[in-house]
Computed example of a mutant assay.
Amino acid sequence: MLRCLQAGVLLQRLHVVLCSAGGSSGIGEAVARELARCGARVVLATRNAVRGEEAAWRIRRDTGNPEVLFMPLDLSSLRSVHAFAAAFLQQEPNLHLLINNAGEQHSTDGFSLPFQVNHLGHFLLTQLLLQRLQSSAPSRVLIVASSAHQAGRLCMAKLGQPPPGPFAAFQDYCNSKLANVLHARQLAARLQGTGVTAYAVHPGFVHTQLFRHTPLWLQPLWTPLSRFCFRSAAEGARTVLFCATQDGLQPFSGCYFADCRPLQPCAQGRDDAAARELWERSERLLGLQPSLCTPVE
């Protein structure tokens, strides 16, 4: 795992790392543990207070780093995102790394669950923390995406609505992951020259995250298969850690990474017009004022 953390110059600057929503287990906890082991101050943000506090305690115990904290955040509630951002900004003067890694939750705002938790909640959180990221630059935003984005089909006029069909839950998940790739691409374009960079990261097929989106009738097949054929959380954390700590990644801002290297996303994931439209429609869905920053042509 620590092979991904050889770039010590950037790592020494990681005073505050925010692992949002998925930090209490799986990939999120594995990433947080390694960054804490290397001395970073880490804030775990997750919905379940008991699990969040337990994860923070485990990481402090395992790493000897007392600077691992829990703060409550429910990405499925936009009110919770606003409250969390306000509390975080009051408590933490710096933010050098924001890792948007969603966990399982339940939507309360009328949007489909995967789209709100995987895209809208993180879009809102990133916007609310953007000034702090800029004032702490050089800083990074990591958005945990997936190769499942290749099956995504975003209908811009129906964003946030569940797709039809017998595989609606899985299609919804794929759509949200395509939104992750486009979000990172557009965020990077809008933040050129600010010292803030953004990356979409595919952790690989990890047992902890993918198969909860399969239909119930397939889960008896997929669950045992995933345990023996797919990556552990620690293995899935490698590319996230690489993008969090590796020096010299600034030219790759906006790119999609897998297996610790940049890869070409699908054609839809490279569509700059779609990325701009997704950004603008996401702002409207969330009731945000249009961003002052615009992409550099």
Rank of each mutant, 00 (worst) to 15 (best):
E92M: 10
Q134D: 00
L159Q: 05
P290L: 13
C255V: 01
L210T: 01
R153C: 05
R284V: 05
C4I: 03
R47H: 06
L113H: 07
A30C: 02
L249S: 08
R212E: 11
Q186W: 12
L125I: 01
Q91H: 13
A179P: 00
K158I: 03
D62Q: 15
F84D: 02
L130M: 11
H213Y: 09
S24K: 09
L5W: 13
C38Y: 15
A40H: 01
T214E: 08
S25P: 00
A40R: 01
V81A: 09
T239E: 13
A274L: 14
H149G: 04
Y173A: 06
D74E: 15
V196Y: 03
R13V: 04
R37F: 09
R190L: 01
G52D: 11
H82S: 08
L14R: 03
D259E: 15
L10P: 00
A148I: 01
S253Y: 05
Q134L: 03
R270I: 04
C260W: 11
S282R: 07
Q289W: 04
A102W: 06
G193I: 03
C174G: 06
H122S: 10
G39Y: 05
A200I: 02
L125M: 04
Q171H: 11
P162R: 15
M1A: 07
H96W: 12
D74G: 01
G52S: 09
S139P: 00
R13I: 04
A198L: 02
A184I: 00
E92L: 05
P114G: 14
A198H: 02
G269C: 14
P93M: 15
T108C: 12
S76C: 12
L10Y: 06
C255N: 11
F70R: 02
V117R: 01
L113D: 11
P215A: 15
S76G: 12
L249T: 06
F257L: 06
A233R: 07
L286R: 14
V43R: 09
A188F: 03
F230L: 13
G8A: 14
L210N: 02
P295Q: 14
L142M: 09
A258Y: 14
E277H: 10
S76R: 13
I27S: 00
G103F: 10
E34F: 05
V17I: 02
Q268I: 02
A148Y: 03
Q91L: 14
L5G: 05
L241Y: 07
A151V: 04
L221Y: 09
A189C: 05
V296W: 09
T208E: 11
G287W: 11
H207E: 14
L129Y: 08
V181S: 07
A258E: 10
L225D: 02
D172H: 07
S112G: 08
C293K: 08
H202A: 09
R61I: 01
D74A: 11
R270Y: 05
P163C: 15
P203V: 12
A188K: 06
K158P: 00
W57V: 01
Q264K: 12
A273H: 09
V16L: 07
C38P: 00
R261D: 06
Q131W: 10
V17H: 05
D74Y: 11
R238N: 00
G195K: 10
L97W: 08
Q6R: 13
C155P: 00
P290D: 08
Q131T: 04
N118D: 14
G23Y: 08
G64V: 12
C255R: 15
L154K: 02
L113R: 13
V144W: 12
L5R: 08
